[in-house]
Design a protein around this nucleic acid. Structure first.
Lengths: 199, 199
DNA sequence: GGGGCATGCTACTCGCGAGTAGTCTTTCAA
DNA sequence: TTGAAAGACTACTCGCGAGTAGCATGCCCC
């Protein structure tokens, strides 16, 4: 009970931090701003986090973990390479779009992370690239894909999706699911799979 | 003569600012740092720039203009849609990789630009997306490409290339030109063009 | 050879914001 | 009903870095 309340308050702080860091940037946001938005004062935040940079790490790391989980679980699926790639791309795209502010903050404010937190997250990203690249390599080996350089293709693919944090608008023309499926079609084409376009 | 010296000093300041902003971030770099690196003092910088944020704009804007120029000139080429797209992609990729630090700074530090500078640069990016999207649309209309949603495809394409600022290493396996050509192949595939893969 | 201007420097101001010390209040247990 | 502890606040400190006022030096032109 006590713990749940504590966890809830922590979450509320993080939510507000995400909103403000996203809108004004990390250095453009003060702890007083966050506290004011929550209707509390700055020392309150210090009872839940060691400081501003810890707040940043706390809001980046779980999101990167989700992205890694999305591709990892897709890669472990008992399915064809094409199906696995499709799931990896839709899953990753959904994480990027559902947690767009967190993703944006991470990519923009990476330089402000504490060295150890940065190292941890960087390791996660290395894994991510490795899994995606492996997916392409295996598919090519199985004859399902036609890819010249799977490392480069993985980076290109990752970029195509990650980049969506810069342009996606929740109120826009396409829903998250629609965008994810379009992205998967584009990705499969990049991998050399013939994808039929509906009219 | 006088003017040339002035312009040279300006350029030196910008070069050093790019290095430091790229390595440590905008807020992580002080004007004293830049001055020290140049072997001068802070007020020297103020004789060439109004302040820190003007420095930022001065190092972002020309780079974005170069990117726009690359795709615009490719789009104006008297050639097939496939050729035009290929030129647009290789040209844009080269700008991103040759001016990687500037591109990185722009995308990371956008939030620190003065409102008017931000507006100008944002307008350039809108044009960029419009040109790229038009290239895809025209190609599809001419039957050269097979694209369901050319706006989305333009964003995906733009992201695939832009993203290279996060991973490209000049000392790495691929040269700028090689990378640019691979990117063009991937882009054409995304556009539904059959591209043969060597080996 | 001296007035004046360009150029860069020394030595400040000043505000802001992260982080903290110590106080007040509320709640619960005995 | 009182004592203690949790939880949050008030009211600071303190360093840092952007930006500036005014001085020194050297160069050129008359």
């Amino acid at each position: 009970m006590r713990d749940e309340i504590l966890a809830y308050k922590r979450e509320r702080i993080l939510e507000e931090a995400v909103k403000l860091f996203y809108a004004r940037g990390f250095t453009g946001t003060t702890l007083d701003d966050i506290a004011a938005e929550l209707g509390v004062t700055k020392p309150f935040i210090y009872t839940h986090f060691r400081g501003k940079v810890e707040l940043l790490a706390a809001l980046c790391k779980p999101t990167i973990e989700m992205a890694l989980e999305a591709v990892t679980s897709a890669a472990a699926l008992p399915a064809t390479p094409t199906e696995r790639l499709r799931h990896a791309i839709t899953g990753f795209t959904k994480v990027v779009l559902q947690r767009q502010p967190n993703i944006a903050i991470y990519f923009r404010e990476e330089k402000n992370l504490a060295p150890d937190a940065l190292a941890e997250i960087t390791a996660l990203r290395k894994q991510f690239d490795h899994v995606l690249s492996g997916l392409l390599k295996d598919g090519a080996a199985a004859g399902a894909f036609e890819i010249e350089d799977h490392s480069l293709a993985a980076l290109a693919l990752g970029g195509m999706i990650s980049w969506a944090y810069t342009w996606y608008r929740p109120a826009g023309r396409l829903s998250i699911d629609e965008t994810a499926h379009h992205m998967a079609d584009l990705a499969l084409r990049m991998a050399g799979v013939r994808v039929a376009i509906p009219a």
